[in-house]
Design a protein around this nucleic acid. Sequence first.
DNA 1: TTGAAAGCGCTAACAG
DNA 2: CTGTTAGCGCTTTCAA
Lengths: 345, 345
Amino acid sequence: MPVTIYDVAKKAGVGIGTVSRVINDSPQISECTKKRVQAAILELNYQPHTVAQSLARNKTNTIACIIPFFTGYFFVELLRGIQNKITEYKYDLILYSVDVTNKKEHFLQKALKERKVDGVLLVSLEITKEFADKFIKCGTPIVLVDSYHPNLDCITVDNVEGAYLATKHLIDSGYQKIAMIDGQLKSIPARLRLEGYKKVLQHYQIPFNENYFVACDFTQEADGFNKEAGYIAMCRLIDLGAERPRAVFVSSDIQAIGAIQAIKDRNLRVPQDIAVVGFDDIELAQFVGLTTVRQPMMKMGEVAVERLLEKIANQTTNGFRRRFRTELVVRESCGGVNTVVKNLN
Amino acid sequence: MPVTIYDVAKKAGVGIGTVSRVINDSPQISECTKKRVQAAILELNYQPHTVAQSLARNKTNTIACIIPFFTGYFFVELLRGIQNKITEYKYDLILYSVDVTNKKEHFLQKALKERKVDGVLLVSLEITKEFADKFIKCGTPIVLVDSYHPNLDCITVDNVEGAYLATKHLIDSGYQKIAMIDGQLKSIPARLRLEGYKKVLQHYQIPFNENYFVACDFTQEADGFNKEAGYIAMCRLIDLGAERPRAVFVSSDIQAIGAIQAIKDRNLRVPQDIAVVGFDDIELAQFVGLTTVRQPMMKMGEVAVERLLEKIANQTTNGFRRRFRTELVVRESCGGVNTVVKNLN
DNA sequence: TTGAAAGCGCTAACAG
DNA sequence: CTGTTAGCGCTTTCAA
């Protein structure tokens, strides 16, 4: 029933090869026959069968994006950037969203072996050495976003700098007893943010206090970056009693929101009793008045796609690095006024 | 380089047809050869080439979802539901996100003719009669979510009821001068919500006041459901001076948030000076304390996928209808206390 | 049960 | 420049 390349060829009185050339606008074709074929295509309302094209070309014009879908805004913004570029380059996007129950390995394997996609974007998910090797061996283009692997292309944000900026802002605001609430330490961003936190303390010769650091290793959820974990962590800090910190750098906004809830539930105030700085600048942050560290999420998505398509086009080597700068967005949660502080220089 | 069905056949000492049968676990195969083939598959780490399968079967196991991507939470929740089901049924999801610049027609056409997908989910976007006919004629399964067309499958929320609930709540709270801020009237939900609003007024014999109704037809953006539009609309209402309404039903939370901003900017208070009720129950609503109408977004996504896959499996006829109930979520923005009021009965 | 062979709709190499 | 033909990797008759 659907019209094929043969129908077009017959109607135009040419061979299918010629039709194919017109479709893929090959230069070696006379203007005259080209017109004729185009007329036939229009008349029959012909459109190539992409699946057949994919098989013949061994190219699908599709990429996969494997992404955790539960956390909201960060991913939405990233996806927006990804979509922008993908549409621009006329590719299609298959979305694999990973939640706690279904393991990312399944999707990685799919992407690798089913050959339904030309490349993959792995977002905020770590990749095992085993899979990294597989991708390299198979030559399947992959770029990591907000994640890291020494042998693969990585697009990240400067987590160390971000944490540094956030904590420094607290110090600059006059706080000394500054705690940190982190995600699970198995998460790379979590470790890097801790590094930034420690770095400022050291720089200002404030000793690192074990009691002031809470990693959300206790939660079930993937990486500890969630509201409930932030709530619980903050409770622990408050339970320190007189020893409790006067300011907290929380390694994600969503945790920070949980933390703020905890503070309020204990009848304390933000920022008068405890100042809070977050990380991410999710949409809620603005409404809550949370001082936080902003990442150029959309831009990261765009760059990721550009890089991936570039790799698909010409098999470039792995090891591309792009680290985005962060910026501090000052709001009310630590007693400042609304401004954007540019990144360090 | 990659291993094909021929490699497996050779290694197992059988024909490719047999291998194919094992892959698709056809019943007509002896347990013995089956084992042998499976061993070969395992040994070679063979995985079928999905694109080739798609071509041969004329089935891609992929569906497209065409969705506006700018508005945030509503779509994220819906997508989550869609993803849940899609993963469960082992399908893949191609995401086409429509923004102001690229027209949905392009994606509809793609989905229809490229044959890269087995069916499409059209979310919150209206479809022209022309395209509806095309889909019906081609027999391409399509289901509309949060949209409507008489000849297609539709999954919607009871907008009339929702608007009714919201407005009734204001009346029950003692307000009489109740305005409505709506989206662009070309949007179907906008029209239905207006209908619900008018219905309560009539029921309580409150005359409909032209000045108290503002449709956001003035904005550039697709449907008027955005923060800026809400802000402007509210300004107009406030500009009514002494005549201004004491309560407003705003047809989306995001507009309501803009409206609240406007109220505050004019040094008025919510709810003391103007009470506000929204629609959607986006994540922000909770943080802002906005009373609103909740839609079962995730559930809608799940049902949509189930229906679509059902249609793909057995060419059922169009005209499926599923309308979800809404419920009112009472928060502070109209002077009440936090509770969930079940839908009408 | 199983193997051989004919497509699925297209691309691309090869002749002419 | 253009037609012919051999695949792309699989499914699915059709015989055996």
